[in-house]
Design a protein around this nucleic acid. Structure first.
Length: 604
RNA sequence: GCCCAUAUGGCUCAGGGGUAGAGCACUUCCUUGGUAAGGAAGAGGUCGUGAGUUCAAGUCUCACUAUGGGCUCCA
């Protein structure tokens, strides 16, 4: 057996560790490196090593499960002491001590009955075994530490060096909110030191573009303890950015035949009862009483649009009718899930409801998908689509659900658009296509959504007059493309690391006059910019030129423009490119043309 | 909501049972400089909120609020 082989992959793609394979294994060997299979073994063994260290430091610790996940590994366990981030160092240190003992990792098997007996004193192990169907269970042993485990593991602790424990967290036993909460420690491990270092650097880079940090630095948005959690404030620069995004999207909606509407923020609770929100979504709603009448603050915009639709009789000739609204909604999210702009309690959706005939579903859904694609391309986002099916808490008949779900799949399949299925992930009133985009550190966020709804039209008796003069029920398609301005701007900020394209940047140009005598020229330029709808600032504070240039650069604006004697004389500007730091001169007119042309990039 | 952690001037952070400190930012003055920090002076904080322990609490304890890392859920 080669020194560097830590396991094998059989023909089915299963990983077999050296303990299980024996000496004459014919399967493909797994070398000790950063391949997927190798990391799987290394990380799993590192999780066990961590458990061993924890059991030495906290002798009464009991262990649940310690799997490998996308970003490394974790172990769930129960312990009497409180473990905080500061304790991770001590655990790491103990792990390194254990490595020095060069334990081999041995495997032995026993029947489930024997195992149940062996771990009779350990209720967590009993719970683990409840979830296992096999009759034969394996135990891995290193030094005095042994643990029930399926493997695979490295042959010896000597293969483990490059790891880091990253965070400590609480996790419900088995992911069940009603179950006891265990302590979870996350860690990461690699085959070599460089990869570990690179990973840590990547995390630090991601931290630098965290939208919460940039949002504060760039004065885009803020939160306020006195106002309450999850309630964002938009500062002037953030509001400008948001307004630009709203305008781009507003035009895009009009071009696609949408009509703006607007509903009230609060509606009587009876309407929410009719819709089913009261029963299915009530725990997330803010309710209030006015003149002994119960009202609900809207968590969604559909009801308003339905009332507008119903205001006058509609003909099949009116369909499809596309109502859209930047709808402000309030949802009572649990305090622990709030996260910068990505998860808030008040947010504005770019919401639309398309009322159409059942035969129009596929073409309407497809048009929305194309709209989504145009928006995602504009910002350079990768995204995936997911068809979400009927959840446990749902209204409407199964047959209706099936028809709607199939409609969504047909629209995607008919146009060769790839998608995955999220079983049980639908809204309570219908199936949906979720559009998920990936942020700067690889987290996936749901943004856009397309939902087919046969239920609300029925509940509210929404009707149109068909060609044969009978009354029919339209289908409602709920859709959002950004999802919410809050979340989308949060993701955009991280995506661009704060360096927004010209058509979004809250400040598009900063003029830096070389000395006081050139300030007038700079202000004249600023006025000219404003007439063209371009946001510019003049940095003429009593600071050195270098410092003002530095401050301007730190603002992450698309253009920093220096003006001095030469520019004033020739009516030109000296532009610093923010990317390559080169500079070039243009006449005022050329610069204006360049800017207005570049603004066109924001059209969809 | 639950587990763990954190909370000191606008920002980043140091300090620590005897009554608060730095850098940046801010104000004023000098400096008018051609591409990432010129110099000087000044102002600014009941140390998140409320209780408790103590002769004495910003420092210790508890509760609450907010934030961060997770669990669960969602745009």
């Amino acid at each position: 057996m080669s020194e560097n082989i830590i396991g094998y992959i059989d023909e089915q793609g299963n990983i077999i560790d050296t303990q299980s394979a024996g000496d004459n294994c014919q399967a493909t060997p797994i070398e000790y490196d950063n391949s997927e299979a190798s990391l799987e073994i290394i990380r799993h063994s590192t999780a066990h090593l961590m458990a061993q260290a924890i059991s030495e430091l906290y002798p009464n610790a009991q262990f649940f499960v310690g799997p490998v996940v996308d970003e490394g590994f974790y172990y769930d366990f129960r312990v009497d002491e409180q473990i905080g981030e500061n304790d991770l160092k001590a655990i790491e240190k103990k792990m390194k001590e254990l490595i020095k003992k060069k334990y081999t990792i041995e495997k032995y098997e026993m029947s489930k009955t024997e195992a149940l007996e062996k771990f009779a004193h350990d209720d967590l192990k009993q719970k683990v075994m409840e979830r296992i169907e096999d009759d034969t269970l394996s135990v891995y042993k290193q030094g005095d530490f042994e643990d029930l485990c399926r493997g695979p593991h490295v042959p010896s602790l000597r293969f483990l060096h490059n790891f880091k424990l990253t965070r400590v967290a609480g996790a419900y036993l088995g992911g069940d909110e009603k179950a006891e909460m265990l302590t979870r420690i996350y860690g990461i491990a690699f085959a070599d030191k460089e990869s570990l270092k690179a990973h840590i650097t990547m995390l630090e880079e991601a931290k630098k573009r965290d939208h919460r940090k940039l949002g504060a630095e760039m004065e885009l948005f803020m939160f306020n303890e006195e106002a309450g959690a999850g309630l964002p404030f938009w500062m002037p620069k953030g509001a400008k950015l948001r307004y630009k995004l709203e305008s781009i999207l507003h035009k895009a909606h009009l071009m696609r035949g949408y009509e703006p509407v607007r509903g009230p923020e609060i509606l009587k609770a009876d309407l929410w009862r009719t819709s089913g929100h009261y029963a299915c979504y009530g725990e997330n709603m803010y309710l209030t009483t006015i003149d002994e009448q119960e009202y609900g603050i809207k968590p969604m915009n559909c009801l308003g649009h339905i009332q507008v639709f119903k205001q006058s009789p509609k003909s099949y000739r009116d369909l499809p009718l596309r109502y859209y609204e930047y709808g402000v909604v309030h949802r009572h999210e649990k305090s622990g899930v709030l996260h910068g702009l990505l998860r808030v309690r008040e947010f504005t959706q770019d919401d639309a409801h398309i009322f159409c005939e059942p035969e129009q579903i596929a073409s309407e859904v497809l048009e929305v998908v194309e709209f989504v694609d145009a928006v995602m391309k504009l910002f350079g986002f990768d995204y995936t689509m997911e068809v979400a099916t009927k959840p446990e808490k749902a209204i409407g008949e199964d047959a209706v659900w099936e028809m709607a779900t199939q409609g969504l799949k047909d629209a995607l399949e008919g146009n060769n658009l790839p998608y995955t299925i999220d079983e049980g992930g639908g809204a309570f009133y219908g199936p949906k296509i979720d559009i998920k985009i990936t942020d700067a550190i690889g987290r996936k966020w749901q943004c856009g959504t397309i939902q087919v709804d046969f239920n609300l039209p029925q509940r509210f008796e929404v009707e149109y007059v068909a060609e044969d003069n009978t009354r029919k029920q339209p289908v409602m398609i709920h859709r959002a493309i950004l999802g919410s301005f809050e979340r989308f701007i949060g993701i955009l900020t991280e995506h661009y690391a704060g360096e927004f394209p010209l058509f979004l940047a809250p400040v598009q140009v900063i003029f830096v006059p070389i000395s006081e005598s050139h300030a007038d020229y700079a202000y004249a330029l600023k006025r000219r910019m404003r007439l063209e709808g371009i946001d510019a600032e003049v940095y003429d504070k009593n600071d050195s030129l270098n410092k003002r240039i530095r401050n301007a650069e730190k603002q992450r604006v698309p253009y920093v423009v220096i003006v001095g004697e030469e520019e004033v004389t020739h009516n030109t500007v000296a532009i610093r490119d923010r990317r390559n730091k080169e500079q070039y001169n243009l006449t005022q007119d050329e610069f204006m043309v360049k800017l207005t042309q570049q603004l066109q990039e924001g059209k969809i």
